[in-house]
């Protein structure tokens, strides 16, 4: 960092921050308007919320690492960016909760902190997306090459990276549903054969979305070198990740406490159907081969 380097104009930083807040609200608003999120702030023990925040932080770090908005970064820069993402998420969530009248002078400190902690998770995901995905390509000519193709060229993201993004997408989607009571009802009321039908339906649809439906970022049916780089294995692996993410969220929101195994399995399968679509969307985001990217542009 030499003296000769120009200082980034404040105007640009302000624009970045506004874009971050906008992206955060775009993703976070549905959950800011969800009653179960407000209630879980005091119903959940502190350590569970901290665990959720930790998982969210890992996802944010991972997304920043994979997303190309500033490819050549040191680990320190990556960490700083991720802390900023979480911090902006916390500030945006706080302001939104204040404006919505969900926290005020009569709210206890623990309740307020709990609400901010839970709501900052989806907001931070939105902030993260705003940095990597929603940025206009000509925003900064230096970064344009990496940024323009969004997270972009699949060549830079290995099979594991893609699976990680799948997990992030699954978390982002399922988070919108997991705090509500619906997965519990769906899981408990579904007959066993219905659950057995939901699994192949989920697999078939997510397989088709990523490898057949010709979405931007979709891929051909050609297998790669890694065992995970085959359409079938990748679909199965992404589904497994979705099941895990669903179980984590249901556990975190207390939906597994004192619930029988059958009901837990039902809930996980029903929520994983939603999570899988998030996983598919995430994989579309990191996209296909370079060749397909070029065709798209």
């Amino acid at each position: 960092m030499s003296k000769s380097e120009p200082v980034k104009p404040v105007r640009e930083t302000v624009r970045d921050l506004i874009r971050a807040a906008g992206g955060g609200l775009l993703v976070g608003l549905p959950l800011l308007y969800t009653m179960e999120m407000w209630d879980h702030s005091f119903l959940l023990p502190s350590w569970k919320i901290v665990v959720l925040l930790g998982v969210a932080f890992v996802v944010v770090v991972g997304f920043s690492a994979v997303s190309g908005f500033r490819r050549e970064r040191s680990w320190a820069e990556l960490l700083i960016d991720s802390v900023e993402t979480m911090g902006i998420g916390a500030v945006v969530a706080t302001v939104a909760l204040l404006l919505l009248g969900r926290i005020g002078l009569e709210t206890s400190l623990r309740d307020a902190v709990g609400k901010i902690a839970l709501e900052m998770i989806p907001v931070a995901f939105g902030v993260s997306l705003a940095g990597g995905q929603l940025a206009s390509p000509d925003d900064d000519p230096e970064d344009a090459a990496a940024q323009g193709s969004s997270v972009g060229d699949g060549a830079g993201v290995g099979a594991f990276g893609r699976l990680f993004i799948a997990g992030g997408g699954a978390l982002l989607f399922a988070l919108n549903i997991a705090p509500t009571e619906e997965p519990l009802l769906l899981g408990v009321e579904a007959e066993w054969w219905l659950l057995l039908l939901v699994i192949p339906a989920t697999l078939a649809m997510t397989f088709a979305i990523v490898f057949y439906a010709d979405f931007r970022g979709g891929r051909s049916l050609d297998a790669g070198d890694s065992p995970l780089d085959h359409p079938l294995t990748e679909t199965l692996a992404a589904y497994a990740v979705s099941l895990l993410v669903s179980l984590l969220l249901l556990w975190a929101f207390g939906r597994t406490d004192g619930v029988g195994l059958r009901a837990i399995i039902g809930q996980v399968i029903m929520l994983a159907a939603v999570a899988s679509f998030g996983a598919a969307a995430g994989r579309l985001l990191v996209g296909g081969s370079q060749q397909q990217q070029q065709e798209a542009t």
Binding site: P9, T13, V50, G87, I88, A90, T94
Partner: peptide, 22 residues
Amino acid sequence: MRQNWAEWATLAVSVVAVIGVI
């Protein structure tokens, strides 16, 4: 490019917010 004061302020507020919540 070097960071301007607004970026430092963002970082400071972020660190305080994250440490405060956790």
